[in-house]
Simulated assay, not measured.
Amino acid sequence: MNQFLSVAREAALVAGKVVMEIRRSNDLGIRIKEDNTPVSRADLAAQEAILTTLHRYFNHQVRSEELPYAEGVFVGKDSPETWILDPIDGTEEFISGGDAFSISIAYAYRGEVLAGVVYAPALEQLYHAARGEGAFLNDQPVHVRPIQNLEEASLLLTPEQRQREIYQKILHTLRVKPRIRKLSISLKAAFIACGEANLYIKRGPTNEWDIAAGDLLIQEARGILTDLSGRRIVYTDKDPRHILGLCAGNKSLQPKALKMLQKGLT
């Protein structure tokens, strides 16, 4: 296991312990941020635990949902080495008492993710991947399912997405079956990587920290993830919300779905 992955795993496990301790205390310290999304005491404590762990080993740039640039502690914006993290992906799920939230940590060099961890502490699921070394769930190798035909495939949706007109249109266009699960974005990517569903499609902007680790998981599980124009994601943009939609699946289904979406939803 390479050094970056080892440290990412350590940071995720430490943060997971902190998050679960705060959850058991019932003192979540919830407030609403300027973008009208919630943040809890656990988000900030998990971020601090991750930053402390990373700083013990490295002096790299960091991007985080709760701290877009950790300047003054880590190397500034010109560093080619970047840690991209979401202390709690799925804060609303965490606050509501659900289990489908995750901690997402990725290491990128010049925009390419080389190591990534997605940890769901309440589910006791630790996904990890390193470039060229495969994808794993709790240290067991995982792969995308090798389905060839869209008619046999399932599309991963949340209950809320299932009710939206655009996703009903996507289901109709692709003629796929819905696979309904309430999951954080990084856990959706992990579910594709381990074959729990065959396609994941997201409309609208996506933050880098939500998908960076999951992107590598899918690639190392023999799948592919692009934006809705078909471009692979490079994690160097100054605006972390530069990713315009997502389409993930195996290397046979994903291009077929993307082509049909580009024709059917324009």
Rank of each mutant, 00 (worst) to 15 (best):
E48F: 09
P68Y: 02
L123E: 11
V7N: 06
M260I: 04
E133F: 10
A15E: 14
Y69I: 05
R164C: 10
E112M: 08
R231H: 14
K251H: 11
I95P: 00
L174D: 00
D27C: 07
P255E: 10
L246S: 11
R241A: 08
V118Y: 03
A8Y: 04
I147D: 09
E196C: 07
E93M: 06
N26H: 12
S96D: 09
G29C: 12
T173Q: 07
Q61H: 04
V142R: 03
W209Y: 08
R232T: 15
Y69N: 10
A12E: 04
D227S: 11
G97T: 00
E124I: 04
P141C: 08
S79G: 02
A46S: 15
Y167W: 11
Q254L: 10
T173P: 00
K263V: 12
D139I: 04
G245I: 14
L253G: 09
Q168E: 14
I50P: 07
P205C: 10
D35H: 00
Q61L: 03
L5T: 13
S79T: 01
K238E: 12
R131V: 09
E133K: 13
H55N: 15
E92A: 01
Y127M: 09
T53W: 07
A248G: 15
F136M: 12
Q61S: 07
S25I: 11
Q47T: 01
I166H: 08
C247S: 11
G29Y: 02
E10R: 12
G223P: 05
A49Y: 06
R63E: 00
Y127R: 06
E93F: 02
L44S: 05
A221P: 03
D237G: 09
V73Q: 08
I32P: 02
L5H: 13
